[in-house]
Design a protein around this nucleic acid. Structure first.
Length: 183
DNA sequence: GCCTCGATTGACT
DNA sequence: GTCAATCGAGGCA
């Protein structure tokens, strides 16, 4: 069962924690979400939505349950899920997956047999997510997130790779998972 | 128009 | 552990 809009239309931190253990699907490829980060708006200096609305960050202000995909460091796509009610900015960065299905395809896309999805740029490559998915509705289409009954043990840390808002504990990952990008 | 730098990765010492 | 690759968005003029 894919997650419905109501799941995403809540506090960003809550959604980030509850996404752990759920399953990200794009076509043939599936992976369990094992690591996420929450990004807010005006109160979060690390967020793209800190400050004014721009062509890039406007996706974060739109309806919950759509994809926010952006390009960084000259070669990497980042996949986020938009949260909060329409008009309120928020997104959850998916940082790592545990590969479940379509692993052969992931290996082909990554041109590797290991480290397929243990980082935000790696998992987008493995699942074939790029610019064309920006703004796509996850409640309707080939890219979506499946519910699960799993209630994982969650660890919380500060976010990775940012320069501002470094002290905010908004990174979450599943305890003992070997598929996270870092411990 | 020009300049800076990034929610990263992979190669190398 | 260090560091280069690589390009578009965003800020400023």
């Amino acid at each position: 069962m894919r997650l419905k809009r109501g799941f995403y239309s809540r506090n960003t931190e809550t959604v980030a924690k509850e996404l752990l253990g759920k399953v990200l699907v794009n076509g043939m490829c599936k992976g369990k979400i094992v690591e996420t980060e929450a990004y807010f708006g005006p109160n979060d200096p690390a967020s793209h939505a800190f400050g004014k609305v721009t062509k890039r960050n406007i996706i974060m202000f739109q309806k919950p349950g759509i994809a926010y995909v952006y390009f960084t460091y000259g070669n990497h796509w980042m996949f986020n899920v938009v949260t909060e009610k329409k008009g309120v900015p928020g997104a959850v960065l998916i940082r790592a997956l545990e590969p479940l299905e379509g692993i052969k395809i992931m290996k082909m896309r990554r041109n590797k047999i290991k480290d397929l999805t243990n980082g935000p740029g790696k998992l987008t490559q493995a699942l074939g997510i790029d610019r064309s998915f920006n703004g796509k509705d996850l409640t309707n289409g080939s890219l979506f997130i499946e519910n699960s009954r799993e209630k994982p043990r969650i660890l919380t840390t500060t976010r990775i790779g940012i320069n501002r808002g470094k002290d905010m504990p908004l990174r979450f990952y599943i305890k003992n998972s070997v598929f996270v990008s870092r411990k």
